[in-house]
Nucleic acid binder design. Structure first.
Lengths: 148, 148
DNA sequence: CACGTTCGTTTACATTTGTAAACACAAAAG
DNA sequence: CTTTTGTGTTTACAAATGTAAACGAACGTG
């Protein structure tokens, strides 16, 4: 399931890695991007150029000419993009797995005190109306062997 | 980034949907699978057969002959597979985005009381040592414009 | 002003993935 | 026992993706 869908179109893993760089820098020239990605990935200059080009065609990046080079700027924000690809993934996962999954993520992710506080608050809000059991919804009710 | 990596090999979205069915049923014949997937997806019988075949080659499913048909059984468990693809996704996301992302997931996911309790416990454990600020790690320290 | 350097654009090509028809074989039916 | 039918296997092919060389235009340099 290689590609993450954002905004209707989809972005591949390779493209995503480049977006991360542009998001982090705010904007960058292709040279910057090539150098930065090569710290992590063994991609040729040509490969990165192709990927950047595709990101522009897909309207994820815009370019602004500045002297001889182009400056790449994100056309979509990182937060929404991150939420989107995650939602997409969660939509492909059995509902019964989500609780344990989130628990594991909470345990493994480095969270700030503020993050923790807001999560605790959210959980406190949810608790009163939380069901005892979760149904999976993987299949139409009567064909499910897992939760029903 | 279409494909989710599990166990070293990778599984595509389409294949994943079939695995969900087999996981949910425990095991199933191709006919069962074809009928069940067609409740959700407009895939031809042939397409499903191809996909099942690929899942067998990739060692995600095994087959057992039973009369004229084969019974497909998962060779990997759903829980670990789910955790794997999620970890993979999280590894491609900026550390600074993870807190807000998890918060959103917690809010949007239907959680059981047990899930909530264990998450609260996990958060309580983490709180004392939680940092005030999160750094992003998207780029080597001195090249980062976002957190440093 | 000619020339090499530095980009962005085109073109290329092997794999993977989505989609599916054609084929082969075993089992059920008559 | 022959025919039909349900199933797995092969073969097919276009689109997407990873990977990259070749080409061409613009800019700085001598």
């Amino acid at each position: 399931m290689e590609s993450m869908e954002v905004n209707g179109t989809e972005m591949t893993s390779a493209e995503w890695e480049l977006m991360r760089i542009v998001w982090t820098k705010g904007q960058a020239s292709s040279t910057d991007i090539i150098h930065l990605i090569q710290l992590k990935k063994d991609w040729s200059e040509s490969t990165v150029k192709t990927l950047l080009h595709r990101l522009v065609s897909k309207n994820y990046l815009s370019t602004t000419k500045e002297g001889r080079r182009f400056i790449y700027t994100p056309l979509i924000d990182e937060g929404p993009a991150v939420q989107q690809i995650t939602s997409d993934l969660f939509n492909q996962i059995c509902d019964m797995e989500k609780g344990p999954l989130l628990l594991k993520l909470i345990k493994e992710t480095t969270l700030s005190q503020a993050d923790i506080t807001s999560m605790q608050a959210a959980l406190t809000v949810k608790a009163p109306n939380a069901p005892t059991e979760i149904h999976c919804h993987c299949l139409p009710d009567d064909t499910c062997n897992k939760c029903c």
